[in-house]
């Protein structure tokens, strides 16, 4: 396989994941804005921060008006992480690596791109937002389904999976980082209304509110949430889950390429660290410091993969 093709697959799936995550962030923000209009502006600001585009947004706009933020996150071409930009980048990568995709995956991506481009042609009115977000979710699921149902389980698939989970881990970690202060036991008062808003946002951003309730009932605590999103390997968007998936797929890649890939070594360090971590330790060393460290390791891993498999030369 060409290095460029491996890189194209990796990025195609990163962008797909990113577009889906951005849509989830919008959904969470929208929900909060509807139910707690007073804290809406702050919420939208932190949604922008979770999507790592707040600086970019501030360059273009003066306030956090809901429809403006939604538009920026959903369809603004100036925002490379907007749902539309990310999906278009995914589709461009798919065109580039078409020879490595099954017909069904290509068609799913291409058709989804056509439908999303059409649905997001004009700014989406508030009343139509739930439908638009639903459409994005369904199309992400369509591509994921085609990938699982038709792709050969070879190195192409592994690059796709590694890209997916690397991006997802990054996104979950960023959400945690933006909200880390509300999870610190020292400054939170359990049961205060402000905190409930914050926690709910976090769980909604990762589509985890229902799962969390299954596991912990209505006992929503900062410690519980942090543990759920960092260490619970049953939660498909937790850091532990993403890292364990990545280590599986990188392991397959290593066995096919039968070299001592430096990326796999990095991966192992990351995985072992996480395995040995307990939530109390995280809070002891500082949640913020822990997440910053994780984001850095995750980015280093991505760079190492890029080098090991000659994505760019």
């Amino acid at each position: 396989m060409l290095g460029k093709t491996a890189g194209g697959i990796f990025w195609m799936f990163r962008y797909l994941e990113r577009s889906e995550n951005t849509a989830r962030l919008i959904e969470a923000g929208f929900r909060i804005a509807l139910t707690r209009p007073d804290s809406a502006q702050d919420e939208w600001a932190s949604v922008l921060q979770s999507a790592s585009v707040r600086d970019l947004y501030d360059q273009h706009h003066d306030d956090y008006d809901a429809s403006q933020v939604v538009n920026f996150l959903l369809r603004d071409k100036a925002n490379p992480s907007s749902v539309l930009s990310a999906f278009e980048a995914a589709r461009n990568n798919a065109r580039m690596v078409r020879t490595a995709l099954t017909q069904e995956v290509w068609e799913a991506v291409n058709e989804s791109w056509m439908q999303l481009t059409d649905a997001l042609r004009r700014p989406v009115r508030e009343a139509d937002l739930p439908e638009a977000l639903g459409l994005i979710r369904r199309h992400s699921a369509l591509v994921r389904g085609a990938t699982h149902g038709t792709m050969l389980r070879n190195d192409v698939f592994d690059f796709a999976r590694v890209g997916t989970f690397l991006e997802r881990a990054d996104n979950t970690a960023r959400i945690l980082d933006v909200k880390y202060y509300v999870l610190l036991p020292s400054i939170t008062q359990i049961g205060s209304s402000l905190d409930n808003v914050q926690w709910e946002t976090i769980l909604r951003s990762v589509a985890g509110q229902r799962s969390y309730r299954w596991l912990h009932g209505t006992d929503i605590s900062p410690r519980g949430i942090a543990e759920f999103l960092i260490l619970d390997s049953r939660m498909p968007r937790s850091l532990a889950f993403c890292v364990s998936k990545m280590s599986g797929n990188l392991g397959y890649l290593q066995s096919q390429y039968c070299e001592d890939c430096p990326s796999f070594a990095r991966m192992q360090v990351l995985r072992d660290q996480l395995k040995e971590t307990e939530i109390d330790h995280v809070f002891e060393m500082g949640l913020h410091e822990f997440i910053i460290g994780f984001l850095r390791d995750n980015a280093d891993l991505a760079a190492q993969i890029e080098e090991d498999f000659r994505f760019n030369g």
Partner: peptide
Amino acid sequence: HDCRVVDGRIAMRTT
């Protein structure tokens, strides 16, 4: 840009 001359042949950069 995926290709270059290597040992007198045209070679492509693979993984």
